Computed example of a mutant assay.
Amino acid sequence: MTVNLQKAEFVLSAVSPKNFIQDGLPQVAFAGRSNVGKSSVINRLLNRKNFARVGAAPGKTIHVNYFSIDRTFYLVDLPGYGYAKVSKAERDRWGKLMEDYFSRPDLLTLGVMIVDARHKPTADDCTMARWFRDTGCPLVVVANKLDKLKKSEIEPNLQVIWDTLALREEDTLIPFSAEKGTGREELLGAILTGIEQ
Results as ranks from 00 to 15, higher is better:
T122W: 09
N157T: 00
V36K: 00
P121Q: 14
A123R: 15
N43C: 11
F67T: 00
G59H: 11
E179N: 12
I154D: 05
V112S: 05
V15S: 14
K120D: 07
S87W: 04
Q6K: 14
N4I: 05
N47L: 14
G80T: 06
K38G: 06
L110A: 11
H119R: 12
H63D: 15
N4W: 02
G80D: 09
N35L: 07
E153S: 12
K180F: 03
P58T: 11
L139R: 08
L149A: 02
L146N: 06
K85C: 05
F73R: 01
M113N: 03
R168G: 09
L158T: 05
A190F: 02
K88M: 13
N43T: 09
P105D: 04
K88P: 05
R104H: 15
R53G: 07
R184W: 11
G32T: 05
A29F: 05
E179K: 14
Q22P: 00
Q22G: 10
G59L: 11
M98N: 08
L192R: 01
L107R: 04
Y81W: 12
N144L: 09
L97R: 07
L167W: 06
L5R: 00
R118E: 00
K49E: 13
I69H: 01
A143Q: 07
I21M: 07
P26A: 03
G183C: 13
G55C: 05
G80Q: 08
T172A: 10
D116N: 06
V64S: 00
F102E: 07
E185I: 13
C137H: 12
K96C: 08
T193N: 11
I174W: 09
L25G: 02
Q159F: 10
G82Q: 08
G37K: 10
I161A: 11
I191G: 03
K145P: 04
L149P: 03
Q6T: 11
E9P: 00
F30V: 01
S16D: 15
T2K: 09
I195P: 01
F30W: 06
A84W: 09
G194A: 11
E9C: 06
P17C: 03
M98R: 09
V86G: 14
S152Y: 15
L110M: 11
P58D: 14
W162Q: 08
K38H: 06
K49A: 01
V11W: 02
A89D: 14
N35W: 05
K85F: 11
P17Y: 08
P105V: 04
I21Q: 03
L108W: 08
V3G: 03
G189C: 11
V54W: 03
L108K: 03
L45P: 10
V160Q: 10
S177Q: 13
N47P: 02
Q197P: 00
A8P: 00
S39F: 03
K151C: 04
E196Y: 01
Y83A: 01
E9Q: 09
V64F: 01
D163F: 08
I174S: 09
P175G: 07
